[in-house]
Design a protein around this nucleic acid. Structure first.
Length: 511
RNA sequence: GGCGCAUUCGUCUAGAGGUUAGGACGCCGCCCUCUCACGGCGGUAACACGGGUUCGAGUCCCGUAUGCGCUACCA
């Protein structure tokens, strides 16, 4: 019907707090879909809820998506031909469209106070403001024209409600779920325009903006599926049905344990972030941690999120953003909610850490070294990172893994000493000293290894009986990279110094 | 309560009538090995249930159950 139109999608968050990771995924899928199809991605801020508005939220949303490399073609802070993109700045636009609905009899004015409605709800089970009940309410359908005008003239508050015609079959054609049918009688006459702040509700603003901004595809969370029929009706009421966007309702992101959709409380309860960036609630002072600060790489978060509700149909699991753009499709989105498994998230981060070079990873470490006043040689640091990074999931893991290169062990792991420091150990290691001293340097780890191994063979001792305690003297415990990579990075002087120190200390200890 | 959506290993998922139901994370074991890791190999473990349709159903239909979502002058 509208294949000739340029693909345009929007990500339309409400600035009510930090952007939830589920929202990030919605943004991602919109982005991937748009880029896959050569379309545009619009950022629209839906700030029609004045009560829940949080000032810093908009900034947070923009910063978070920027960190994740999800880019917009237009919208708040990006410019574009359909400005303004902030709904609070579009009041007059909505007003004229509400009037259009009023003029054509698709909507009506209602004076019923919130208290009055509350009373109805308590009096009548399952009360709903609709075709069957509106005749008994205070609205422009039941009141005379003069009465309505009089009430408005005296400043009485009123809302505008959509007039839903009962008993109509409404079909929502969803790109992920197929046809969803519902009968209009179960819909209520939703408020389109609020009485107190001169702003429309989501439903009205959404339809008007998507139409005006020429949005072709609405990709949003499944929680919107129940109101999609209302939206279809609104497009119809405006006479915009032939350019109505296609809908795709994404499955929800669920709590890792228990049930229900992932909420912001789950993060700190279960020890992993549910927000892209750290967030401090200004009202309560409550801090929630973010993926960035927790040490996740944006590409790992993207990869992880992409696979939560979508898959390529192949066995490939590692995808760059570019690859995702090439291969993404709504048809391959799943229909059921996905539980959030952060163990898999860690695995992705581990994978992405491995392909980062040491120079890049050093950026995370250098501030820590400086803060802790630890001397380091940049080149040695880079070598050390390469030597230990396969053990790390997060950049911060690297610090503990390579600290021994820069700070000589003063103590030795008791269990390891017990297990590896045998009767003959000090004798052996003492004899190893001149062997090492005879070498010019340790720059060639294969040569060092060969030298030690040959000496060992001559002594007819088993290699482990030398290597294990030797490791203990240099590292302080039984972990770390290949021994002769360690000696290479440490250098000859430092190696011998540590060896001698340990011999002294451990012999005392043993006595 | 009403309406809607969903249901394959613990988790993410492949599967579009005929498969020993595949992969990944996690877990376990083995190999590699100077330690810890990495890596390699292997193992563990699933079609919610009941009816149909069909020669044949994880795949199609109906029902039940369960879960989730929505049911605000919030989005």
């Amino acid at each position: 019907m509208h294949t000739d139109r340029k693909i345009r999608v929007r990500f339309a968050p409400s600035p009510t707090g930090a952007l939830h990771i589920g929202g990030v995924r919605t943004a991602l899928y919109n982005y991937l879909f748009a880029k896959r199809n050569g379309g545009d991605m619009v950022l629209r801020i839906e700030d029609t809820d004045t009560n829940r508005y949080v000032p810093n939220a908009e900034k947070y949303i923009i910063e978070a998506l920027n960190w994740l490399n999800i880019k917009f073609d237009e919208g708040v802070s990006f410019g574009g031909n359909f400005a303004p993109y902030r709904q609070s700045e579009r009041k007059e636009i909505y007003k004229s469209y509400v009037n259009q609905l009023l003029d054509t009899g698709k909507a009506y004015i209602a004076f019923d106070s919130p208290e009055n409605l509350e009373e109805k709800h308590t009096q009548i089970a399952n009360f709903q403001y609709d075709a069957s009940t509106r005749i008994a309410m205070l609205n422009s359908l039941t009141l005379s024209k003069e009465e309505v005008e009089k009430r408005i003239a005296t400043g009485e508050k009123y809302v505008v409600r959509v007039k839903i015609e009962p008993n109509e079959d409404i079909v929502v054609n969803d790109l992920i779920r197929g046809e969803v049918h519902i009968n209009s009688s179960i819909l209520d006459d939703k408020v389109l325009y609020k009485s107190f702040d001169g702003l429309p509700t989501y439903h009205l603003a959404n339809i008007v903006d998507d139409h005006l901004m020429e949005i072709t595809h609405v990709i949003r969370g499944e929680e919107w599926l129940p109101s999609a029929p209302l939206h279809v009706l609104l497009y119809r009421a405006f006479g915009w049905e032939n350019t109505m966007p296609r809908f795709a309702h994404l499955p929800l992101l669920l709590k890792p344990d228990g049930k229900g959709k992932l909420s912001k409380r789950d993060g700190d309860r279960l020890g992993f972030p549910v927000f892209p960036l750290d967030w401090i609630d200004e009202k309560t002072g409550e801090k929630s941690s973010g993926y960035r600060e927790a040490g996740y790489f944006p590409e790992a978060v993207i990869n992880f999120l992409a696979l939560l509700g979508w898959n390529s149909g192949t066995e490939q699991e590692i995808f760059s953003m570019e690859e995702l753009i090439q291969i993404f499709s709504l048809e391959r989105c799943s229909k059921s909610g996905a539980k959030f498994d952060f163990e898999k998230g860690k695995w992705f981060n581990h994978k992405y850490l491995q392909v980062r070079n040491s120079e890049n990873l050093a950026k995370y470490l250098i501030p820590v070294f400086k803060e802790k006043n630890i001397d380091f040689d940049k080149n040695k640091l880079l070598e050390a990172i390469d030597a230990v990074k396969e053990r790390a999931t997060f950049p911060k893991d690297l610090f503990d893994l390579l600290l021994f290169f820069f700070v000589a062990p003063q103590d030795f792991n008791e269990n390891d000493v017990k297990k590896r420091w045998k009767e003959e150990t000090s004798q052996l290691l003492t004899e190893l000293i001149p062997v090492l001293e005879s070498m010019e340097n340790f720059d060639n780890e294969y040569l060092t290894e060969e030298t030690v191994k040959q000496w060992c063979e001559q002594k007819v001792c088993n290699l482990g009986s030398v290597m294990n305690p030797f490791r203990l003297t240099l590292v302080g415990e039984m972990k770390g990279p290949q021994m002769f990579v360690v000696t290479k990075i440490l250098g000859k002087n430092e190696t011998l110094k540590r060896l001698k120190f340990a011999l002294e200390k451990l012999n005392l200890f043993k006595q």
